[in-house]
């Protein structure tokens, strides 16, 4: 493989450039995936049947904690990529590890939130509203879970193989994914929670 040294490592080879563009297009598809969930959510938002409405079950504290955790993790992975571009392998791995820990904490709070919903009678099968609420949050949560494993694998590879065009490329693409999950969360935070509690 030819390597172009004038560009950051993750853009170094032709295949790397393909991977990055391909991943951006995948993110375009993800935009539509979440848009469809949002469209469904907004349609069913007030169709609560005999179950509770959003305002009755949402709690600001865990939601705010989740938001701060995810925003910070988006920041730390940004720092990780910055460190990677400076060639600082250890700093980069540390930032990635911190990101994953923050993601893990986010997931923990989300699991707490879910058990809380079930507890107050807003389980998956209660109404159209609860069904789509938990499906939408669950889809985002599943993405975060996949991200945790993926990120872990990448840290392992960087540790073992060092910063090569290949591992740098994977790390950069993972950072795109993670930032994207943060963007999705911003919309969930604004238009599911805050709109529901307004």
């Amino acid at each position: 493989m030819k390597t172009d040294n004038s560009l950051p490592l993750e853009y170094g080879t032709e295949q790397n450039k393909l991977n990055i563009l391909g991943f951006w297009i995948f993110l375009g598809a993800e935009v539509m995936l979440f848009a469809t969930l949002f469209a469904t959510y907004f349609t069913l938002e007030h169709r609560t049947g005999s179950g509770p409405a959003g305002a009755e079950i949402f709690e600001i504290t865990p939601v705010l904690i989740e938001t701060i955790l995810l925003l910070t993790s988006s920041f730390t992975i940004g720092l990780g990529v910055h460190a990677m571009r400076l060639g600082r392998k250890n700093a980069m791995m540390t930032f990635f590890a911190v990101t994953l820990l923050l993601g893990l904490a986010f997931l923990g709070v989300e699991i707490y939130e879910f058990t809380h919903y079930v507890h107050v009678g807003a389980g998956l099968q209660v109404s159209a509203f609860t069904g789509i609420l938990l499906t939408t949050l669950g889809t985002h949560g599943a993405h975060v879970t996949v991200g945790l494993f993926w990120g872990l694998f990448i840290i392992m590879q960087v540790k073992k193989r060092g910063l090569t065009p290949e591992t740098a490329n994977k790390s950069f693409i993972f950072s795109l994914y993670w930032h994207f999950l943060d963007v999705v969360w911003i919309f969930i935070f604004s238009f599911i929670y805050l709109k529901g509690m307004m």
Binding site: T36, Q125, S127
Partner: peptide
């Protein structure tokens, strides 16, 4: 992706008892 979500929601209704497209509970 729209199809993916639509089929997912249909599967949820049929296999996991949600009420997205059902006649009851909204």
């Amino acid at each position: 992706p729209v199809l993916t979500v639509t089929l997912l929601l249909g599967t949820m209704d049929r296999l996991f008892g949600t009420h997205i497209f059902s006649m009851t509970n909204g």
